[in-house]
């Protein structure tokens, strides 16, 4: 048991649990990607790895999918469904994964 969890146990778990145990949680918006790209964007079979993707490249490619200027099968249908703010969260998150 870690020191933090001992304190938590002593004080009552719900008081400390959330902030103490939260490690870089996956943003909920990125959970939608997991179904094809994997929980951490690790890719699967023919589906591209997006973990560790350069943030600016991610944003640029997303824009190309959005305006249909990049050859695509399904990402050109997905990309227009997300706001700029949401895409930035995705770009930051996947760039942060090693």
């Amino acid at each position: 048991m870690t020191r933090i969890s001992l304190i938590a146990a002593a004080l009552g778990a719900s008081l400390l649990a959330a902030p103490a145990f939260a490690e870089q949680p996956t943003p909920l918006i990125a959970q939608g990607c997991a179904g094809c790209h994997g929980q951490s964007g690790e890719g699967q079979g023919a589906v591209a790895r997006i973990a560790g993707y350069d943030r600016d490249a991610f944003l640029a490619i997303w824009q190309e999918f959005r305006d249909n200027s990049r050859p695509a099968t399904i990402m050109n249908r997905i990309a227009p469904g997300y706001t700029d703010e949401e895409v930035q969260i995705l770009a930051d998150y996947f760039a942060s994964i090693q």
Binding site: A34, G38, V47
Partner: peptide
């Protein structure tokens, strides 16, 4: 052909999830 392979990848990814 690509979408068939994406479908297979989807199945593997989502069942892992």
């Amino acid at each position: 052909r690509l979408e068939a392979s994406y479908a297979d990848a989807w199945y593997d990814s989502i069942t892992r999830d």
